[in-house]
Design a protein around this nucleic acid. Structure first.
Length: 483
RNA sequence: GCCAGGGUAGCUCAGUGGUUAGAGCACCACAUUCAUAACGUGGCGGUCGGCAGUCCGACUCUGCCCCCUGGUACCA
């Protein structure tokens, strides 16, 4: 039994989770359940990125302490996951002072010992209103930030710690080009490699304590500096499995077998993170799956447009598995996709109600009418899954929609089989061949249920239970058609 | 600007240097309960982004152009 350590990107917990977060949780959950299905011992970690200045500012704006503010939003993320039938084995928060602070300080010290951390003066344009540095191209035509027009920016210099990323240029080229860290899909790998080709520069990994308002993890040995959020955020992947507080646990799960992230943060995961780990002398992640972003009715989600979709609303209206199916099948894995309620309805009726649901109903009814007795429980259905290469390959390459297409092909086949055999006529004429026909149907349905397990766990369980036998009865529809 | 990917039926996409370019959904018709008016069968539907070129022949190759998407770092 192999261990499989899976992580998904730790979200900024400064607002409620939207449909895009839901999608990422689902991708991870499918991978998790798939590996459980094939017998791996799996740990799935996610968590909260809480040490950013933006969090501090957002809390202030909301009139809350940062602690209270992050508590509220953490709970929202956990609630959404629950609604989606996604379970984190570890939810590691960045503000966890007992585990995550010492863990991140340990990582820092290891990099420092390797000679990869040094002090340098950074000079940039600082907006006093935002308490942030800006790049020139982020400013309006007057060279002012969009939040505070009319307020000129100051050129401020500050001494910070830098990480010697440039040292890892050739190491990273080898890592990515030779798939030692395998990136899915290819297009994202190309992007990361192209980024490397331009040449790497060292990057800042700390800021002054005043500027951070003391919010964040103190740099070891220098109380005047706080760690740059990304340095500690990435380390959440290690903290959660014991780094710095439980060596045995850490040894058991490290390294990351798979990381799942959105396209916006490839640089941090494909470049910064492996370099930091290599510097610290730690094991490197093996795979990185990068998904796209979702639009809503063809438009970018935004608060100003008011089109942010709350996954909980969708679940309440259509059910958990309906949303799971939509996000996993109607969006091409690894590419951008669109969410729309009308398309959700279409997909629901066509695939879930008309095909899968109806197939379950007709087989159940036929079994009931024929007084069919299911002899041996087909509990070994899941054992065959590994042998289904098309399905297994699709999942190992994070092509969720292709894996689902494979299952739906089996559903089609079974519908055709029934139409060809016409078992309803055998019922009427008392033809005993019906036993063979129904047995074939039930076996196939059990297999379909097993294949569905990672994707639609509730539905899978319901089918498995309904056809377990010995008696099989007709139930109400799994997915009633939406008018 | 540069780099990458893409522009194919109403929608989402697949596809090959060579007879009438494919699938699913949607739509229409037929048929119809074993089943959720579902399943099944048939049909409608595309000048394959534009222009030029190579070739006996291009949607598939070359060049130019137009459009879309993403990346282009020290946002501490």
């Amino acid at each position: 039994m192999a261990k499989f350590y899976l992580t998904s990107a730790i979200p900024y917990v400064n607002a409620k989770p939207h449909i895009g977060h839901a999608q990422e949780f689902l991708y991870s959950d499918v991978i998790k359940r798939y590996h459980q299905l094939i017998g791996d011992s799996v740990l799935y970690l996610c968590g909260a990125d809480e040490n950013a200045l933006k969090i501090f500012q957002a809390a202030e704006k909301a009139g809350e302490t940062p602690e209270k503010f992050t508590d509220i939003h953490n709970k929202e993320f956990l609630d959404v996951a629950k609604q989606l039938n996604v379970q984190f084995d570890v939810w590691q928060r960045g503000s966890d002072t007992t585990k995550h602070f010492p863990s991140s300080q340990k990582l820092w010290e290891l990099c420092e010992k390797a000679g990869d951390i040094y002090k340098k003066t950074y000079t940039g344009l600082y907006c006093v209103g935002c308490e942030m540095f800006y790049e020139k191209d982020e400013l309006n035509e007057n060279g002012e930030c969009f939040e505070h027009p009319g307020k000129p920016l100051e050129e401020v210099s500050e001494e910070n710690y830098f990480f010697r990323l440039s040292k890892y240029q050739s190491f990273l080229e080898d890592l990515l080009k030779n798939d030692k860290l395998k990136i899915f899909p290819d297009i994202r790998k190309n992007e990361a490699v192209a980024y490397l080709t331009r040449g790497l520069q060292d990057f800042s990994i700390s800021r002054s304590k005043e500027r951070a308002h003391g919010w964040g993890i103190p740099v070891p040995g220098d109380a005047s500096q706080i760690m740059y959020v990304w340095f500690d955020a990435l380390n959440i992947y290690q903290t959660g499995i014991g780094f710095g507080w439980d060596e045995e646990l850490y040894k058991k799960w490290n390294p990351q077998d798979s990381m799942i992230i959105g396209k916006g943060i490839i640089r941090f995961h494909a470049i910064y993170w492996p370099a930091i780990l290599q510097s610290a002398g730690l094991k490197l992640p093996k795979e990185l799956f990068v998904h796209g972003y979702l639009t809503v009715d063809g438009q970018k989600m935004s608060k100003t447009l008011g089109n942010v979709v709350d996954p909980v609303d969708v679940v309440k209206k259509y059910g958990t598995d309906a949303l799971r199916y939509y996000l996993l099948s109607a969006v091409p894995s690894g590419a951008d996709g669109d969410f729309s309620e009308s398309r959700l309805k279409e997909v629901y009726n066509a695939d879930l109600a008309n095909n899968l649901g109806n197939l379950v109903s007709r087989v159940a009814k036929l079994c009931e009418s024929a007084h069919y007795v299911q002899m041996a429980p087909t509990g070994t259905a899941s054992a065959h899954i590994i042998e289904m290469e098309e399905y297994a390959t699709a999942l190992s390459e994070y092509r969720f929609n292709d894996a689902l297409a494979f299952i739906w092909k089996k559903i089609d086949d079974l519908n055709h089989f029934i139409d060809t055999e016409k078992p309803w006529e055998m019922v009427k004429s008392d033809d005993r061949r019906i036993i063979g026909v129904l047995s074939h149907c039930v076996d196939n349905l059990q297999e379909i249920a097993a294949l569905l397990q990672p994707f639609l766990p509730e539905t899978s369980d319901a089918i498995e239970k309904q056809f377990k036998g010995p008696e099989i009865t007709f139930n109400k529809p799994l997915f009633p058609r939406i008018p």
